[in-house]
């Protein structure tokens, strides 16, 4: 069981070849960033981007946020150089593009283990964020989600996915529904988070909000972003409403009383409070704390009961 997952509402892409933008990584309050060595970086700048990304990682050891590096696909000649250069900078994880099947994740897992041994890090230090971005990737993602213990979430890459289907991506996104559901199911079944695709038009705030509200309803826990201006909108959508927080706090009080009475079930205004309700309430509270809306210390003993 995943007891506590990091908040990953917003994962911001930062092009690895742009020092001015790398320098601003600590500034923006995305939950995580993904330094991009892949699509945002032209072939002529792949080597420069690696060096810049590594120097950035070394220069900022005290991190306020999770840092992934999106390497080039393992089927390209760049991927191994990417890993060799950036892993000594100790990113938190690797976003793996074109994670079409479990085997490609397993290959990355093996490579990461080798680096952890070489760098004297504990095994499992580097996490993996597989990106599902093709028809075959969607079909395989249930197995892909279970291919490695390093996986923290499944990410969806809608731009590449629609390209693989030879269709246009629309603002309303009906064409993505099937893939999105499959990815959410695969992720949740494996106890993982699900990170939705980017919304490419940074100026279309209303479109971003609608898209984020949709994927939140579907079960996604966060979104990849192309521009820091998108952070606030996405956080706002994922921000718990005051009545949700109030309810969650009531649930916590109720279950605390229940645990004191030695039971795991209690009624709150005629509605049953049991394990799934408590877990959902704990999630709401954790998110509310992350937003600075409340101060609350969650106790696992209260949430899950004593063993």
């Amino acid at each position: 069981m995943v007891i506590q997952q990091r908040l990953r509402r917003t994962l911001l892409y930062v092009p690895g070849n742009m020092p001015g933008m790398l320098q601003n990584i600590p500034v923006f309050n995305a939950d995580g960033v993904m330094i991009d060595l892949e699509d945002a970086v032209p072939l002529s700048e792949k080597d420069a981007a690696r060096t810049l990304a590594r120097n950035f990682l070394v220069a900022f050891p005290d991190r306020s946020k999770e840092i992934f590096v999106r390497i080039n696909g393992l089927d390209t000649k760049y991927a191994l150089d990417d890993l060799r250069q950036v892993l000594p900078g100790r990113p938190d994880g690797i976003r793996l593009p074109k994670a079409d099947d479990p085997e490609v994740v397993e290959r990355l897992d093996t490579l990461l283990t080798e680096y952890e041994e070489r760098l004297g890090l504990e095994i499992g230090y580097f996490s993996i964020l597989p990106s599902i971005e093709s028809a075959v990737g969607v079909l395989n993602c249930v197995k892909t989600a279970q291919a490695s213990r390093r996986i923290v979430a499944l990410a969806f890459g809608a731009e590449d996915y629609t390209a693989s289907l030879e269709i246009q991506r629309t603002r309303s996104g009906e064409e993505l529904l099937g893939a999105r559901m499959q990815i959410v199911w695969a992720a949740k079944a494996a106890g993982l988070q699900a990170i939705d695709s980017v919304f490419a038009d940074a100026n279309d705030t209303d479109g971003l909000r609608a898209d984020t509200e949709l994927v939140k309803r579907l079960g996604f826990t966060g979104k990849s972003l192309v521009n820091p201006r998108q952070i606030e909108v996405v956080h706002d959508v994922f921000r718990p409403k005051q009545e949700e927080i109030d309810h969650a706090l009531e649930v916590m009080e109720a279950i605390k009383k229940a645990r004191e009475m030695g039971t795991g079930v209690i009624s709150l205004r005629g509605k049953m409070v049991d394990a799934p309700v408590v877990k959902r309430a704990a999630r709401t509270i954790r998110t509310a704390v992350a937003f600075g809306l409340i101060d609350y210390e969650l106790s696992n003993e209260v949430i899950y009961g004593q063993e």
Partner: peptide, 11 residues
């Protein structure tokens, strides 16, 4: 402004 850093300062 559309500059993300400027917007963050404003926020």
């Amino acid at each position: 402004t559309r500059d993300p850093a400027g917007l963050l300062i404003a926020h």
